[in-house]
């Protein structure tokens, strides 16, 4: 059994987002980078499955050299080896092509991703890879059990859950509560230093989209406070000023 987890290297969820170079580049100044929170759930579940099924677990990132500490962290959490496709992730199609190429070469039984990246929030890469490989891609998955070659999953839908079954190989885009985030322990951190991290070059440079410029939303005005003993005033404001009632 071979498992692949695709992880993003993204700004910590508390980061203040800013841009430089006339709003054409993300400003990394003072920003801490982490494993994407949804990818972290995928990784945590993959580590559990690895132990349960005696599987091998590879992590993959499409990114420049700066993402290696993030891959090392994934190794410390429990992956056996890591692959970095050496390129800035230009768009979802570009990333999906790189992942597909690696997957074709290595025949993974299960590919776990996050439901979406928290920088571009496309929720697209898993479906694109699924289509290119001709296998199912299911997202957002909140429960995933493997029995033989059957995968039993729960998927979150608007207002509830859907239970489904499919056979391996497949791709799942994960979210909580599929597993609890794992924090690397000392032994993990030590062993991560010597685990293989292979760097490969991208297979295909083409893209379908290109970001021209970034923008920040307009600043919010000051809050209008209403006295707690005069809630009627709030109702009036909502009705007459905001006109939302």
């Amino acid at each position: 059994m071979k498992i692949l987890v695709c992880i993003t290297h993204v700004p910590d969820t508390t980061s203040k987002i800013q841009f430089t170079d006339n709003n054409t580049k993300f400003d990394k100044n003072g920003v801490q980078f982490i494993i994407g929170p949804y990818d972290d759930y995928a990784l945590a579940r993959a580590v559990e499955l690895k132990e349960q099924l005696n599987a091998t677990l590879t992590v993959l990132n499409v990114g420049e050299a700066e993402t290696e500490p993030t891959l090392r962290k994934a190794l410390a959490i429990g992956a056996d080896d890591a692959i970095r496709v050496n390129s800035f992730p230009k768009d979802s199609l570009f990333v999906a092509k790189q992942i597909t190429a690696i997957a074709k070469e290595n025949n993974y039984d299960l590919i776990l991703m996050g439901r979406e990246s928290i920088d571009f929030n496309g929720g697209m890469v898993h479906g694109m890879v699924g289509e290119m490989l001709g296998i199912p891609s299911i997202s957002p998955v909140m429960k995933l059990e493997i029995e033989g070659t059957t995968v039993k999953m729960a998927r979150e839908i608007e207002g509830g859950k859907e239970y489904l079954e499919a056979s391996l190989p497949l791709i799942a885009g994960c979210q909580e509560p599929i597993a609890e985030w794992k924090i690397p322990n000392m032994r993990g951190i030590m062993s991560a230093r010597t685990k293989p991290l292979n760097v490969v070059e991208p297979v295909d440079e083409s893209t379908a989209t290109e970001v021209m410029q970034f923008q920040l939303p307009p600043a919010k005005g000051a809050v209008k406070l209403v006295d707690k003993d005069n809630v009627e005033e709030l109702v009036k404001l909502l009705k007459n000023d905001a006109k939302v009632l």
């Binding site: 979802s92 199609l93 929030n121 496309g122 697209m124 289509e131 891609s137 997202s139 839908i157 379908a208």
Partner: peptide
Amino acid sequence: KSSLGDAVAARLAIKLNAGLVSN
């Protein structure tokens, strides 16, 4: 944009050779 919409759109981007923008 929805969980079903995303999943369908991503596969269609490949099937139709279409550039996809979300959100």
